[in-house]
Simulated assay, not measured.
Amino acid sequence: MTEASKSQHGWSDQLPSDRSWKPRPGMSREARSSEQDRAAGGRHRRVVVLEGDKRATGSIALRVYRRTRRIRAYLRWSEQGRTREQYVGEVSGPSRTTNLADAWMMARAAGLVRDEALPAGSKASSTAVRAVMTANKGRDTGPERRLRSLLYHRGVRYRVNVRPIPDLRRTADLVFQKARVAVFVDGCYWHGCPDHYRPATKRSQFWQDKIQRNIARDADTNRRLREQGWTVVRIWEHEEPNEAVEKVMKVLAS
């Protein structure tokens, strides 16, 4: 086959790198689900509509098509106990994260998935806002539980949801009392994540003021704890769990 013919048929000279399509080794089912949530823009954006107005939660599978040495994306879901899938298209980004996000965009553009509908009587302005509100909990969030589990399996022990300094009304998600390390797992919306925070469109000034107060309180917490000899570690909920663990371990080892 000539070079012109290869180009016309989408051929590539080399196989894509593993990091562009393979999942991280040893990822738990929960970690993979969180990866899909991040790529889709939230679990509420992974809805596959089935016959009879039934719903399923979709996921994207990436595979290398060795004949052309390109990455193909498939939408997968479970229906009546069987795994179904639908070809979405080819992706060519440098990382798995990028390719998953691109595949979800293509699936949505093709009408293969849609956002979860707001339930009757919901006061939320959108499914995205409702998802944020539903996920907002003061403690034991999914990212917190994943971080705790991974640290525990690394042999690290800690206290959960306590004040590092008893007379200071600031509660950390994980506290390493002897090492004087306080870990906070911050939600992207409520703590103003620079990558994922999107201002509300309704009552926008009210919510922006609230987020700014949270950001100011976080900075004040950091300052107060450091003045008392504590090291503060802040982890965004979107961070990959294994990378978050390594961040904590590095601080504990220093």
Results as ranks from 00 to 15, higher is better:
Lys247Ile: 03
Pro166Glu: 08
Arg66Asp: 11
Asp186Ile: 01
Arg130Met: 07
Asp173Val: 05
Gly229Trp: 02
Arg163Gln: 03
Thr221Tyr: 04
Arg180Tyr: 00
Trp190Lys: 01
Arg76Gly: 14
Gly42Glu: 02
Arg180Gln: 09
Tyr87Leu: 13
Ala56Tyr: 03
Arg146Leu: 14
Ser7Asp: 08
His238Val: 00
Asp186Val: 03
Lys210Glu: 10
Glu239Phe: 05
Ala124Phe: 02
Asp115Asn: 11
Leu118Trp: 01
Thr2Leu: 10
Leu147His: 05
Thr57Ala: 11
Glu240Ser: 11
Asn161His: 14
Thr2Gln: 09
Arg84Cys: 13
Glu3Cys: 10
Met27Pro: 04
Ile165Tyr: 02
Arg159Ala: 09
Gly42Met: 01
Leu225Arg: 09
Ala172Gly: 13
Asn242Glu: 08
Gly229Pro: 10
Asn161Leu: 06
Tyr158Cys: 00
Arg213Pro: 04
Asp115Ala: 15
Val64Glu: 12
Gly93Gln: 03
Gln212Gly: 08
Asp37Phe: 10
Arg72Thr: 12
Asp53Cys: 05
Arg145Tyr: 03
Glu227Asp: 14
Lys178Ser: 14
Gly155Trp: 07
Arg55Ile: 04
Leu168Ser: 00
Arg38Asn: 12
Pro194Asn: 10
Pro194Tyr: 05
Arg63Thr: 12
Met105Ser: 12
Ser126His: 01
Val175Ser: 02
Arg96Glu: 01
Gly26Ile: 07
Asn214Trp: 00
Val160Asp: 11
Gln14Ser: 11
Pro166Gln: 08
Asp53Gln: 08
Thr98Ser: 13
Val113Leu: 04
Ala244Gln: 06
Asp173Met: 11
Val181Asn: 07
Ser20Asp: 09
Arg43Ile: 05
Ala39Asn: 08
Ser122Glu: 07
Gln8Leu: 15
Glu30Phe: 02
Ser95Arg: 12
Asn161Trp: 05
